[in-house]
C-alpha cells in the first residue's frame, strides 16, 4: 500500500490515531501528526511512499503534536517528539511541516549507524551514481531536484547512505527541500514538478518541498554503485567550471562532511577510501541549471585506475 492509496481523510485519521508506518528506503518511520490540517500536505508529499499496515519493528517513532500547556503558552504551539521525548520545539505551528521534514532528516542523519552517512545528494543513471557532497547553501538540493526531472534517478537530496559491506548507496527517497528562490527556479525549470505548499517564516526563509518522481520512489529497494564524487557550488552569474580534484582531497572532504565517519572508525576510513578510489572526483561551479545538467549528462564511467598503495 502507498499513502496515495488512502484518501486525505483516511490519512488524517491514521495520523491522528496510531500513525502511519512509512517505509522510506531501509528505514521505517512511525509518523503521527496531531494537527488535522497538515494531513493534506503529508498526503501530497508522501503520495508514492509505501507504508506498512501490519505490526513491525520501527526505526523512528515521530510525533508532531502540541507541547504541554505551560510551554505552549510561552514558546509555541507545536513540538516534535522522537520516541516519546520532545526533541524539536516548541515552535510555531505555522512552520510545523518544514520542521517535521527537518526532524525526519535528522533521524536519518543520526541513528542508522550500521551505515556510513554522508551529508550529500545522490543521483543515478544506468546503475552508476553521482555523490554530491556539499554543506547547506551550495544549491545541491536544487541541482538534484533538476537532475531528477531530467532522466537521473533521485536516491536522496540530503543523505548518501552507504552500506559498508559492499559500498552500495541505498536510496532514501524523501521530499526534496527547496528554499526561497529555488522554489520558483524549479517550477520554471519543470512546470510539472510536484512542488508542495510554500511555508514562509522558517529559520531558512520560505521553504517548500518537491515530491520525488513516482518511479524513483518505487525503486527505493534498488541500490546504486558510486561512480562520481562531484562537489557542487552555486555561484550567481558564474561561468560553469568542472575540474578534477585530487583523490586525497576528496577523501578528506567527504570524511569531514559525513555524520558518522569518525564514529565508524576504521570501517569509515576503508569505506570512503574504496569509494574515492573507484570514483572520478570533481568540483562543479555553476549558475545555469541547464549547463549543469549538461555536465552531468556528459559524464563518462570512471576509468579503472591502478590500485592505490595501501601498505
Amino acid at each position: 500500500m502507498k499513502v496515495g492509496d488512502l484518501s486525505v481523510s483516511e490519512t488524517r485519521d491514521r495520523l491522528m490515531g496510531q500513525g502511519i508506518r512509512l517505509r522510506i528506503g531501509p528505514m521505517v518511520t512511525q509518523l503521527q501528526v496531531r494537527f488535522p490540517n497538515l494531513a493534506q500536505h503529508v498526503h501530497f508529499l508522501y503520495k508514492d511512499t509505501p507504508f506498512i499496515d501490519e505490526p513491525c519493528i520501527v526505526d523512528f517513532e515521530v510525533k508532531l503534536a502540541p507541547p504541554p500547556a505551560l510551554r505552549r503558552w510561552f514558546q509555541g504551539g507545536a513540538a516534535i517528539y522522537l520516541d516519546g521525548i520532545m526533541n524539536f520545539g516548541p515552535f510555531d505551528p505555522a512552520i510545523a511541516m518544514p520542521m517535521l521534514e527537518w526532524c525526519l532528516n535528522g533521524c536519518v542523519f543520526n541513528r542508522p549507524n550500521q551505515y556510513l552517512i554522508l551529508h550529500s545528494a545522490v543521483i543515478e543513471r544506468d546503475g552508476r551514481a553521482a555523490i554530491l557532497p556539499a554543506p547547506p547553501g551550495t544549491g545541491k538540493s536544487t541541482l538534484c531536484a533538476a537532475m531528477s526531472l531530467r532522466g537521473w534517478r533521485l536516491l536522496s537530496d540530503e543523505v548518501a547512505m552507504i552500506r559498508p559491506s559492499d559500498k552500495q548507496l541505498l536510496p532514501v527517497p524523501r521530499p526534496v527541500g527547496l528554499k526561497e528562490g529555488s522554489i520558483d527556479v524549479i517550477k520554471r525549470f519543470e512546470p510539472t514538478a510536484a512542488v508542495g505548499h510554500a511555508w514562509p517564516g522558517t529559520r531558512k526563509g520560505t521553504v517548500a518541498h518537491m515530491r520525488p518522481p513516482a518511479d524513483h520512489v518505487a525503486r527505493a529497494d534498488e541500490p546504486a554503485t558510486p561512480a562520481w564524487i562531484i562537489c557542487p557550488r552555486y555561484e550567481a552569474d558564474a561561468a560553469t567550471t568542472f575540474e578534477p580534484i585530487p583523490k586525497a582531497d576528496a577523501l578528506l572532504y567527504v570524511a569531514h562532511d559525513a555524520f558518522n565517519y569518525s564514529l565508524l572508525g576504521t570501517t569509515g576510513f576503508e569505506t570512503f577510501a574504496d569509494i574515492v578510489d573507484a570514483c572520478d572526483c570533481y568540483a562543479l561551479v555553476y549558475s545555469d541549471l541547464n549547463e549543469a545538467v549538461g555536465v552531468f549528462n556528459a559524464l563518462t564511467p570512471p576509468r579503472a585506475t591502478a590500485h592505490p598503495d595501501r601498505s
Binding site: E270, A273, D277, D309, R310, S311
Partner: peptide, 10 residues
C-alpha cells in the same frame, strides 16, 4: 592505515 594517490598520502 595508508592510502597513496600520486604525491598524496592519507
Amino acid at each position: 592505515s595508508w592510502r597513496t594517490w600520486g604525491d598524496d598520502t592519507v
